[in-house]
Design a protein around this nucleic acid. Structure first.
Ligand code: DTP
Ligand code: DTP
Ligand code: MG
Ligand code: MG
Ligand code: MG
Ligand code: MG
Lengths: 625, 625
DNA sequence: TACCATAAA
DNA sequence: TACTTTTATGGTA
DNA sequence: GAGCAAAGC
DNA sequence: TACTGCTTTGCTC
């Protein structure tokens, strides 16, 4: 802990050291001072291809930062910052005016989930440092975390940090089973809960508390007690007025604790003031570094640099950051709206390319058939021995069949022109999905034989790091009798009954060159991203495959208020973001502010008047004529 | 001419006076001092609903300007303008470096076209003030223009200005005929000419001049001589290195003259310096006023206010204006790329609503059948007695039939919920067109009986202002035997042969309220906009209908260079504009400049390397590894 | 649409 | 010796 | 996709 | 007494 290793300071830059620590270096249960651990991690990796790749990425990021700083200096050149800050302050006022403290949102998250489940099955692990995973840890017990072991860390590195670490193989069926149990309990307290991952979810307990005459703390304690009583698993929870805060709070007293953020403006601002920006969902390690370069480490720093952020809105997403500074975010808690899974895929490492490609095609077939999915585009993903990742995709105007041979053929088509390559991973993914299990629109008479598993619940998979542990239950490929290479078209069905003769594959494969960097601006994740699960229609675990879990993101709402002008937008997030740009560019802030004075709240109206009448005509005439 | 009308200055603001003068107040042949004329025009209109509407629009525009000025002042508040100007200057250098003086572009435009054709048929009109039109003038002879009469002016106003004005009804067949003749002549000098309107076009005569060993002036003189010899019509021309300049120049020596702008940077800059911004194609009366409010009246003023424009890029389209300042624009001359007409419609004034709606449905049927078009969306347009214009549209997933009854029914459906209304005009338009004459993709065996007129040439219509002159040749509606309400689907044909049962019209009619103002930024018109015609596949005149002409816009190219970073973009204008925003936002200007020093020209490359190989993989590995 | 980067469990 | 898997989103060409 | 503003002939 | 008809584009929701 003292500065006594000056001879070999291993030359690594601070940023690289941090980068090598991995993306989950902010997990609960870790030691406060990570510098010693980080040095060991770096030492262990040094010289490997992985290390070189991280170095490259670090360099690229540093260059990107340099560019941004140059741009900032350019923009600030001789500019009087005061009026800009005043402008931002107006915007802050407007945002503040939309704070909603009326809903009690809870984020619940199981403690060291996989490990805790393993502990149930082998109580002798109690108190020992252990972890679940293969070559890489899925998660680690809190004892192991004390040594620095954590999700995503290479096992051999973890062993260096913690020589006594016990490594367990994963049992996804068990995790899935327990996940279901826990989710069912959560659901009792909020039937519209949002399952945001295999081991976590958001609950709006406002109604429950009212109806049962209990306060939030009691209610949450009861939830956690119930979970423990019925499953012997511990869960932590955060209580706050919105999802972002609740999620941050659930981490605060981990493990097996809960934290209730006071529901008033002052407490929230105080809470945010010293909170690391990295804790905010949506800010990962890249954006953490970008913001740090501007001098922003805590959420409180956002305010200090608001002028810079205003000028650099394109890069940094001003509105998101200001709302974060205020501790304002979505408090909508509802299950996934659009019943659409977006993609399904399979990957495999240690590849001998074509052999492995065929394998993943097989796995993908299993998952597609089992889940009842088909899709329109197939994406090949491959990671070079240098750890660089690439994708190659092909879209069809038909639903691709889930037959292993067809998937393999498509994959090959995508892969062959790239050869020769030395790969360390290869994967296939199908997107533009269609749910074959969904109640078909009563189209043709259609298959009486469902592909398999006619359960109405879709059962996506868990993310596994089982690295070649061939425990798939020997697919005795039998019953499914799909079409040659494609399913039949079911949408836009109309017109001729025979095959159109213009079928020469108007299909395009493109080869974009790697664009430099894209300086995305930071945007709030629609909900907590990551392998999430949605309720009640879905379970995140594959029922049969020994593979980990799939993702589903929340807040897929149809309409939301613009945080700036307050207007009710009927659009998705993309549209909302475009609209926010528009508002900002028009400086609607100013107007909104004056508006806000005359009409303190609830800027929506007129919609009723608009309904069945030429709104414009009537409105204009009445107002002006 | 002296200031001697102080008693009744008619209280109109200057802007309103100018607005009442109409959009074509900058035409050639008009007196220099228009103030007296403008006063008469205003006098004549005063008190009418038209006048009130113009006043309203003027007020709205004034408010919009006030807002923008406020925004400008906000943005300039205490800002040091110098670094911004330096930045803009870099951008100007980059833009300048892309100037291309190698192509000789000519814009040819018939003089007082409709009038000149009338003159052929009635030589007694020679030297007299006359015009073509109905209640509104389509165009006026140069004699009439001396009095202030011009396109778009109400006839009764023109009569006030010029009591002896002779008014002629339009003869579109004649104009069409002469248009074809003239275009054929133009085509001899550039087979890839771009017909940009019924009486004008762009020619690239570089090749012709080389091959025939003539200079541009001689060549253009020859063109004009030929036109006059073969048609007795006079044509004016502009010779310049790009389309924008050529178009401006063709107006310079109108009528019956030509102007050759010297092909060097200095001359061009001098030419631009005092040129009214209003002469620039794409800048109409609204943007003229907006720019004027910033102090920009001439193209030279753009430079003076470049810092402001940089800050207000969103409103004003910095790049377009800077290029304009430099006199740089597209020099691509080629006929329309995508063989797609975009819409077809019919309107009629003095409406008794449903009666008239039925009439326009009939006219539309004629035009659709004659032209061989069908489409997917139908738009109803109506103008209130207050001159406010509204549209109501409905889209289908099938091709709408062109039968009068069907069009009428759709129109009624759109109109009825709006009633009661007092209208002064009603119209129907079909968009998302499909060309029934085009060689069908050999789909089903399909109709042997083409709807009518199996000519391979599409013959859209001219814009008429014939206001109820019932000279339609009594539609003896006979032969076409189309489907109930729709044509059969021909695209995406696949799947079941019987009608899908889920056919409950998933069609949406929406009622947006009138959004306030949209502050579009100024952008270059892809070519000269307006009722244009494309060659060689199309004639702009309806062969049979006594109606005026249809439009087609040019420069619909597949790929173009980004004027900032120089990259070759494979995208349409929309994409290009988005990319320009991106470039600007990233301040690529700076880099581009340094780039330009190392690679003076031709920034495109690498594309060849990218082709069949994982560009990214290879490239990165070679460069970095 | 294709491809990449970022984020998350 | 050795550094995951799965899903989602947003931005650009 | 729907609606509107702007531009041009 | 009385102020066009037609087409395209770009932008927002
Ligand atoms: N990077 C990863 N790769 C694979 N699986 C992961 C990864 N991160 C998390 N998981 C799996 C294993 C975890 O037990 C489970 C839940 O994740 P998470 O809630 O973030 O951590 P945790 O539940 O293990 O510990 P904590 O107590 O911090 O919540 O998801
Ligand atoms: N506003 C309008 N409404 C209807 N038709 C128009 C309108 N403007 C122009 N036209 C028709 C009539 C014109 O003769 C023809 C060509 O337009 P244009 O070239 O702009 O003017 P022009 O040829 O009549 O005179 P000029 O000598 O100025 O070119 O298009
Ligand atoms: Mg957890
Ligand atoms: Mg979790
Ligand atoms: Mg003309
Ligand atoms: Mg013309």
């Amino acid at each position: 802990m003292e500065p006594e290793n000056p001879p070999e300071p291993s030359q690594d830059s601070v940023s690289l050291l941090k980068r090598l620590a991995g993306p989950s270096s902010t997990k609960a249960g870790l030691t406060h001072d990570q510098t010693a651990i980080n040095r060991i991690i770096a030492e262990a990796s040094k010289g490997s291809k992985f290390y070189e790749n991280e170095k490259r990425k670090d360099k690229e990021l540093s260059e990107r930062i340099a560019k941004i700083l140059k741009q900032r200096d350019e923009a600030l050149q001789g500019v009087d910052i005061r009026p800009i800050e005043r402008n931002t302050d107006h915007l802050l006022e407007e945002l503040e005016s939309q704070r909603d403290l009326s809903q009690i949102v809870v984020h619940v998250d199981m403690d060291a989930f996989y490990c805790s489940v393993e502990l149930l099955d082998d109580p002798s692990l109690q108190g020992k440092p252990f972890a679940v995973g293969g070559g890489v840890l899925s998660t680690a017990s809190y004892e192991a975390r004390k040594f620095g072991a954590r999700s995503g860390m290479a096992t051999f590195v973890a062993k260096k940090l913690c020589p006594d670490l016990i490594l367990l193989k994963s049992n996804f069926e068990r995790y899935s089973e327990m996940s279901d149990k826990v989710m069912d309990i959560f659901e009792r307290y909020d039937p519209t809960m949002l399952a945001a991952g295999c081991d976590e979810g958001y609950l709006n307990i406002t109604k429950y508390c009212e109806e049962h005459m209990v306060d939030a703390d009691t209610c949450v304690q009861e939830i956690r007690d119930t979970v423990f009583r019925e499953t012997s698993l511990t869960v932590s929870a955060g209580i706050a007025p919105n999802k972002m805060l609740a999620k941050i709070c659930s981490d605060k007293n981990k493990p097996n604790g809960q934290y209730h953020l006071p529901f008033d403006r002052a407490s929230i601002k105080a809470f945010m003031h010293d909170l690391s920006i990295r804790k905010v969902p949506g800010v990962g390690r890249v954006n953490e570094r970008l913001l740090e370069a501007l001098g922003i480490k805590t959420c409180g720093d956002i305010f200090k640099h608001r002028a810079t952020l205003q000028l650099m809105d394109k890069q940094f997403g001003l509105v998101f950051l200001l709302r974060t500074y205020l501790g304002i975010a979505s408090n909508v808690v509802q299950p996934i709206q659009r019943e659409e899974k977006k993609s399904i895929g399979a990957e495999s490492n240690k590849t001998q390319i074509l052999r492995k490609l065929e394998e993943v095609a097989g796995e993908l077939e299993d998952d597609m058939v089992r889940g009842g999915w088909t899709g329109k585009t197939v994406t090949l993903k491959f990671k070079l021995d240098t750890f660089q990742v690439f994708t190659r995709a092909k879209s069809f105007d038909r639903w691709v069949s889930s037959k292993k041979e067809d998937l393999f053929a498509i994959g090959k088509e995508l892969l062959l022109p790239e050869l020769p390559l030395t790969l360390r991973l290869i994967g296939l993914r199908v997107t533009k999905l269609k749910d074959l299990h969904a109640p078909e629109p009563l189209g043709g008479i259609k298959r009486f034989f469902e592909p398999a598993n006619s359960s109405p619940r879709k059962r996506p998979r868990l993310a596994s790091n089982t690295e070649d542990c061939n425990d798939e239950e020997h697919d005795t490929g039998e019953d499914h009798e799909s079409m040659p290479g494609f399913y039949e078209e079911e949408e836009n069905a109309e017109g001729r009954g025979f095959d159109a003769p213009d079928n020469e594959e108007q299909i395009h494969i493109s080869h974009d060159s790697n664009p430099p960097h894209h300086e995305r601006r930071i945007r709030p994740p629609v909900s907590a991203p990551g392998p999430s699960r949605s309720r009640p229609s879905d379970s995140p675990f594959s029922a049969t495959t020994s593979k980990p879990m799939s993702a589903r993101q929340g807040d897929r709402v149809r309409h939301q208020d613009c945080p700036i002008c307050g207007k009710l937008l009927e659009t998705d997030n993309k549209g909302l973001n475009a609209h926010i740009d528009f508002c900002l560019s028009r400086n609607v802030i100013m107007e909104a502010q004056t508006d806000a004075q005359s009409t303190p709240k609830n800027p929506k109206k007129s919609k009723d008047l608009v309904l069945s009448w030429p709104s414009s005509v009537k409105g204009k005439r009445k107002q002006k004529g």
